[in-house]
Design a protein around this nucleic acid. Structure first.
Lengths: 219, 219
DNA sequence: GGCTACATTTCGCCT
DNA sequence: AGGCGAAGTGTAGCC
């Protein structure tokens, strides 16, 4: 990893065109060839960058970073204030816990939190337009399709509506009712869902996790 | 901006939990308090980070970064290989050309590329569920709602369908037909759009730009 | 402040 | 490789 503090201008040409006027910035060159241009604020996203795989050619005061697609990043160096390199080695990577997949697992294991008498058919039930998060049989004989989201927004209502339209054409499982489950249900999503006869269930991730054997979740 | 090369472990607790085992990484501390943990590969996204506003407390070999929301990033330092600071000043920021907003402007100025005899009603036509990119009057008396995307995907069809449902209830402008316009139209989006009577138009950004007075587009 | 939509989104999974 | 959905998304614009 190479770290350069430099006064520079940057021009990107690719899916769009972008220009950075002359200023002092951090140029971060990674071992995989990627280049990041960071300012001293903003967030984790660089002002400009080139993703790997790409090649960096330095010629006088001009750096040219090119990707196979033809995207190019041209950095004009006006002054270099610092230029250091460090050997980091490969990173063992990140382990995560708490994303939608886990909420889906927990809900599938505790279908009673969605409704009484439900029996799991399967998670990620495949359809031609994508997998339904949870499909379950109701004690009354019908089917329930559950769409799981950390935050239920209007797009989740649309998504589940598409699934329901399709699933209800299958006479082996129809009628299929819809349920949206999430830790947060946005007001507008709830309104649209209710209008379409879709029920919303507010889940509690911590509570659900408490119901499961805690030894399963340690890392 | 402070740049630290350190052998460290990182734990994040917030919207999810994440852990980074001991390894050598770049710790980037920006002037606004944000912290980025970068490895030597990946892309522009850090392995772990804390967005501003947040506070960094260093106590012995432990860095604690806390956000108002309660999110926390705990960095355990095993060894510091380098620790430098640099004054960068504020950045003048990025100018862009070629984003959706520009495509919308160009299309509104050249409605003939969408269909003959169209007259602009307005761009960003407001509705209760969001703005319609372009609303135009057809020479036959009806209305045309145009959704503009750089890349037209299935979600654009859903979005325009919602607008059309709503707009067609307004007797002053009904009937309203839908048009999807973009530089790229994905096959599945085209299929769904056609099925719903929505026409797709493939635009050419460079060609559209050429139709406009070029002096307007320089930066 | 809430909500919507855009992004050089990136990332990961699955076909 | 391409399609599709999720993201600790971030960010800007509008109401």
């Amino acid at each position: 990893m190479r770290l350069v503090i430099a006064t520079c201008e940057v021009d990107y040409a690719g899916r769009l065109s972008a220009h950075l006027p002359k200023a002092t910035r951090l140029l971060l060159v990674k071992n995989d060839g990627s280049v990041l241009v960071h300012s001293d604020s903003g967030s984790y996203k660089p002002l400009n960058w080139m993703s790997p795989p790409c090649t960096l050619i330095e010629k006088d005061d001009q750096w040219t970073v090119k990707a196979k697609s033809g995207d190019s990043l041209i950095i004009t160096i006006h002054e270099i204030h610092s230029d250091t390199s460090h050997e980091l080695g490969i990173d063992p990577g990140l382990t995560k816990d708490g994303v939608e997949a886990h909420l889906q697992e927990l809900l599938a294991a505790h279908l009673d939190t969605i409704g009484p008498g439900l029996r799991l058919v399967r998670r990620e039930y495949p359809t031609p337009i994508g997998p339904v998060d949870i499909l379950a049989r109701s004690s009354e004989g019908g089917t329930v399709a559950v769409e799981v989201k950390r935050v239920v927004e209007i797009s989740a209502v649309e998504q589940l509506t598409r699934y329901l339209d399709l699933l209800n054409r299958d006479t082996k499982i129809a009628p299929v009712r819809g349920v949206l489950a999430g830790n947060v249900v946005k007001a507008q999503a709830r309104t649209l869902a209710t209008d379409r006869g879709i029920r919303c269930v507010v889940t509690d991730y911590d509570e659900l996790r408490g119901l499961t054997d805690p030894t399963e979740r340690l890392f």
